[in-house]
């Protein structure tokens, strides 16, 4: 941990600082552009500088029933997929943490696979399985697809927290008369709660704007990302798309930010105690 060496660490050269902060700017400015364009009165092109200023598109977007349906579907899918990921990911993390059995590396590998392989592989694989088994496309086919890659997010967060948790605390709890269930409720859960929160929020954000796998598992249903995707290749409602994109950023930003703050915070306090 670099905590103490910070006083003596050398200053970065101007070139490095410039490159570093230039890269940060590169990472962030496209999102500001979207905010900017939500106020354009221009319906047919992406003219810059904006030919004027208007806020009417927010109202127009609010009136669109198709958008509301897509938004609701996406929120529902993300909620259910997150719950599934929380349960499965926590179970896997608990199993891997509890014991030293032979297959723990393979489990990490298997869980990582859905995000290490291109999304299209997961998507088309699920598509062939759904087709082969003659399962009709539904809400649940989308959820099942999303859960495959959300599990690993929860798993990683919870496992990392388990590893930072003092194992004797669990022994102490049982020693003081608490059975396994009480120990889970009073000692384990409070300790992993923020990790669950962080993992769950990332899983939610991941599911909420997933498009590649969803394309193959949604059938005729339109999630919000699928709606945006249809606008990408054939733009019909440019101004409304701008508003939707902004809404997606806003909905996902908070959970992501909170999750990152939680994990950054917990690794910071760990640095202090060591």
């Amino acid at each position: 941990m670099p905590s103490k060496s910070s006083d003596t660490r050398p200053g970065a050269s101007w070139g490095l600082k410039l490159a570093a902060f230039g890269t940060l700017l590169f990472l962030h400015f496209p999102m500001w552009i979207i905010f900017l364009y939500t106020f354009t009165p221009d319906e047919t092109t992406y003219t810059f500088p904006l030919p004027g200023f208007t806020t009417k598109w927010f109202g127009v977007a609010l009136q669109r029933a198709d958008l509301w349906r897509s938004l609701t579907l996406s929120l529902q899918v993300a909620t259910v997929a997150t719950i599934a990921a929380l349960i499965l990911g926590t179970f896997a993390a608990a199993a891997v943490y509890r014991s030293n059995f032979f297959g723990r590396e393979s489990i990490s590998f298997l869980l990582l696979l859905p995000i290490a392989l291109p999304g299209i592989v997961t998507g088309i694989a699920l598509r062939t399985a759904i087709g082969g088994l003659d399962i009709p496309f539904s809400f649940w086919t989308i959820v099942i697809g999303h859960a495959t890659f959300c599990v690993v997010v929860v798993y990683n967060n919870v496992l990392a927290r388990f590893r930072r948790t003092n194992a004797t605390m669990i022994e102490a709890s049982m020693d003081l008369g608490a059975n396994s269930f009480q120990t889970f409720r009073y000692v384990v859960l409070p300790n992993i709660a923020t990790a669950l929160l962080a993992g769950g929020m990332l899983a939610f954000a991941l599911s909420f704007d997933e498009v590649i796998v969803t394309t193959f598992t949604a059938g005729q249903q339109t999630t919000l990302p699928i709606w945006i995707f249809s606008q990408l290749s054939r733009p019909r409602d440019r101004p409304v798309t701008n508003v939707v994109a902004t809404i997606v950023i806003l909905i996902t930003f908070l959970p992501i930010f909170i999750a990152q703050k939680i994990s950054a915070g917990s690794s910071e306090t760990e640095g202090e105690t060591k």
Partner: peptide, 17 residues
């Protein structure tokens, strides 16, 4: 945080930008 927020945030929207 400044690096990870774009990592997790909407891929589709970022393409759109």
């Amino acid at each position: 945080i400044a690096v990870t927020v774009p990592l997790w945030s909407s891929y589709l929207v970022r393409v759109y930008a």
